[in-house]
């Protein structure tokens, strides 16, 4: 080390923080340079003056720590309040809540269902360019489809049978009334049918359904054997009440 270096490090020799090697070199240099003792004495005096805390110097407020604790309490309460406010704002009006800056996670963000639907509307109908009345019409159509679709899944009153005309048979099994579903040979003539009904004292009350069956009401408690044996009758089933 040269003289400049020793001079620069003299302050830390005085405060005792030089490492062993530096200290040994410094002491050797001081021994060889008696004039440096004057500067070391000046530094010692400076050190003593700086290190001394005089009576007229202000002292740390003894209540400082309590004040610090109060500051920490206030800050924590403010943080809790901010968190509560964020929760309330998010639940009441999420669109009004200031959204945090998006953070790049390295993966594209997957849009939500609402966002996908909005994008599909935009691509399909150019939604933002569609006039308001047209938007109402489109939305009304979708609403109608939704209502009708939902109605299909509602429990339906069980129809006794189906008819080709689309009308459901209004006559179902009633206590004390004998109803029979009857299938007839397609080659049967109207005269043969009238004769059959008259002999069996039967009245057609419904049909034909999708299978071509009629529902007839019998005057007797049970179908007569002649009805069962008639060559034109291909199906006969009593409707149970």
């Amino acid at each position: 080390m040269n003289t400049q270096t020793f001079e620069e490090q003299l302050a830390w020799y005085a405060n005792g923080t030089l490492d062993e090697a530096e200290r040994a070199e410094m002491e050797a240099w001081l021994a060889a340079h008696p004039e440096a003792r004057q500067r070391l004495a000046e530094i010692d005096f400076l050190q003593g003056t700086v290190a001394e805390v005089t009576a007229d110097e202000p002292q740390l407020d003894p209540g400082g720590f309590d004040l610090l604790m109060a500051q920490i309490d206030v800050q924590e309460q403010e943080q809790e309040l901010e968190l509560e406010l964020e929760v309330v704002e998010t639940s009441v009006a999420p669109e009004l809540t200031e959204q945090p800056e998006p953070v790049w996670t390295g993966q594209p963000e997957k849009p939500g269902l609402a966002q996908q639907l909005r994008e599909w509307f935009e691509e399909t109908f150019q939604w933002s360019l569609t006039p308001a009345f047209a938007r109402v019409a489109v939305v009304a159509q979708f609403a109608l489809v939704a209502v009708l679709g939902t109605a299909l899944y509602l429990p339906q009153e069980e129809a006794g049978y189906e008819v080709l005309s689309g009308e459901t048979g209004a006559v179902t099994a009633i206590e004390g009334v004998v109803l029979v579903d009857i299938g007839l040979n397609p080659t049967m003539t109207l005269a043969e049918l009238q004769a059959l009904l008259q002999t069996q004292r039967a009245t057609i009350v419904g049909g034909p359904n999708s299978l071509g069956f009629y529902r007839i009401q019998l005057a007797d408690a049970e179908p007569r054997p002649a009805l069962r044996a008639h060559s034109a009758v291909i199906y006969l089933q009593r409707v149970e009440p």
Partner: peptide, 23 residues
């Protein structure tokens, strides 16, 4: 180093010597 150089003339003028400082 510079801080000491600024103080040194003042110390010398004040008569602070090695003896004063206990050296």
């Amino acid at each position: 180093f510079h801080a000491r150089n600024k103080l040194r003339p003042w110390l010398e003028r004040q008569g602070v010597s090695a003896t004063d400082a206990g050296g």
